[in-house]
Simulated assay, not measured.
Amino acid sequence: MKSNIILLSLCLAFSGFCLAGPDDFKKEIQVGSDRQFGSIKDKVMTFVDNVKVQQGSLLIEADKLEVLATAGKGKEVFIASGKPASYSQMLDGEKPIKAKANEIRYDVAEGTLVLTGNAELSQNGSMVQGAIIKYNLEKQELEAESDGKKTERVTTVFSPEGKE
């Protein structure tokens, strides 16, 4: 029981995790999983099995989530992994942005997502696929890369207006 209270306190200390939805910045973060453990000394928290992170419209689902808080409050790095891990959020009242990859790395201070391994990002019916996708949440800018093999390339699909 005491260790659960310590882990909950550690979780709340990591609450600098916020993204682009205007109301999301003001809401608390809720992380749920089947198991969790961490090191207060090392400022690392791990959530395992059936992981869900929610903050406002933000939702991350993964098999495993590691939260690294070594750089301090508001500078945490969240690393979600799964087959695949997924992210979704409403951006400023627009249609949702959705992403999935083997690993989703969110850097709070930089406001970026890095999707690695079978990465896919979609919004408004358009989609980008690649080995690595870097996405700046504030600027809504992306960069996609292939795995360097000539057999696998970055793919982008543009949907016509009105089609999703």
Rank of each mutant, 00 (worst) to 15 (best):
V114L: 13
Y135M: 04
G16Y: 09
A109I: 05
I132Q: 15
I79L: 04
E141R: 11
E143C: 05
V67W: 04
G32P: 01
N118P: 06
S33G: 06
G72Q: 10
V48N: 03
E110S: 03
I104T: 06
L121K: 09
V154H: 06
F158K: 07
L137C: 12
T151L: 00
I40N: 03
T155H: 12
K100L: 10
D24L: 03
Q36H: 05
A20P: 03
A62N: 02
E66S: 09
E110G: 00
I133P: 07
S57G: 09
N102T: 15
L8M: 10
G148Q: 07
S88Q: 14
S81L: 03
Q129M: 14
V48C: 00
G56V: 04
L65P: 01
G21N: 10
K27L: 14
R35A: 01
E103F: 10
Q140G: 05
E161C: 00
M90F: 07
I104F: 06
N124H: 11
S146W: 01
L12I: 13
C18M: 10
G93M: 11
S39K: 02
E76W: 03
V44I: 15
A119D: 08
L65A: 04
V48Y: 04
S33H: 00
D24E: 11
K41R: 04
D107G: 01
N136D: 14
L68K: 11
F37D: 08
A109Y: 10
L113I: 11
K52N: 11
I79Y: 04
G38P: 01
V154K: 07
E145Q: 15
Q89S: 10
V48I: 09
L58C: 03
Q129T: 15
D49T: 05
S122R: 13
D49S: 08
A80Q: 01
L121V: 13
L115K: 07
V44F: 00
V67M: 06
A99L: 05
F158V: 15
